[in-house]
Structure formats: C-alpha cells, structure tokens
C-alpha cells in the first residue's frame, strides 16, 4: 500500500511539472478577446529580449498590434497593466505606454516601459486596445518563479 501511494504521489508530481519553456526572446502572439486584434509581444529585461521578467526588476513589453478584421483599422491608444488574480492586486507601479500607429500599413508598435512584477506567482498581462469606439482586451499569463 505504501509503495502504491508513493507511486501515485510521484506520478502526480510529474504531472505538475511546467511545460518546457519556449525559446528565449521569441515573439509571441495572442488574439484579443473578441477576435479583433492580433497582438505580438516580447519582453525586454535588462536591455535584452527575455522569456520572463525578473522579480522586482523593471522591464519593458514590446508590442505589435494589428487588426484581424480590417487592415486599415489602427489602435488609437493602448493601456498596459498586469494583475495577480489570485492575490487580488496588480502592480505597484504605473508603466509608461507609448504607441506608434504604424503609419502606412503594418502593425501599430507599442511599448510599455517600467513594468514591474514585485512578487513571484501568476501574473496576467492585460493589453487594452482602443480603436476609438471600443476598448478590447488581449491578455496572457506569465508565471514568475
């Protein structure tokens, strides 16, 4: 019985392993929650592209925001924020967000500087994209070890 229980415990432990991380510095993509936008993003940590930020170290999110519905549609404004849903709070700092609307064609380019995750755990990054009519959210999770 003891061996059986121990085996189950080990199997469960195996199952709780996180999946293998993607290559560092890769651009990721996420579709906004109503399907209007595709948001590509990557993190810049200590001046270099990185997979995850460092706890209590400021970092930057680089963004490319492109309409999935209408190539001529542009993001007019971006809001970038992050929260820890399990902890019922967000960041302690306000990042500085800049947006270049992309000019002729292509995606709008944005940056959020001064992001800071002050705790380990699951963070939800929220990008709110304002097209002048509605503000649509794109989101993804970052697990900070």
């Amino acid at each position: 019985m003891k061996i059986f229980l121990a085996t189950i415990a080990l199997l469960l432990a195996q199952g709780s392993q996180p999946s293998a991380p993607a290559p560092a510095a890769a651009w990721r993509a996420v579709t906004s929650n109503d399907g209007s936008w595709i948001v590509r993003w990557r993190l810049i940590v200590e001046g270099k592209p990185a997979e995850v930020p460092l706890v209590r170290k400021r970092f930057t999110i680089e963004l490319q925001v492109e309409s999935k519905l209408d190539p001529t549609m542009r993001a007019r404004a971006l809001t970038v924020d992050a929260q820890m849903p399990e902890h019922l709070h967000g960041m302690n700092v306000a990042p500085t967000v800049a947006l270049d609307d992309g000019g002729q064609g292509g995606a709008a380019l944005g940056t959020a500087q001064g992001m800071l995750f002050h705790m380990s755990g699951r963070w939800e990054v929220d990008i709110d994209i304002d097209d002048g009519t509605t503000v649509e959210r794109a989101q993804w999770n970052i697990a900070l070890p």
Binding site: D34, P85, G132, T133, T134, V135, R137, Q139
Partner: peptide, 15 residues
Amino acid sequence: EPFMAKLVKTRSYAR
C-alpha cells in the same frame, strides 16, 4: 471558479 470570466471589451458612454 474565481476565474470564470474574462473581460472582452468596454465601450464608454461618451462614445
């Protein structure tokens, strides 16, 4: 399930 819902979008009354 505390994370049952996710925000899709908002539209302000001003718009």
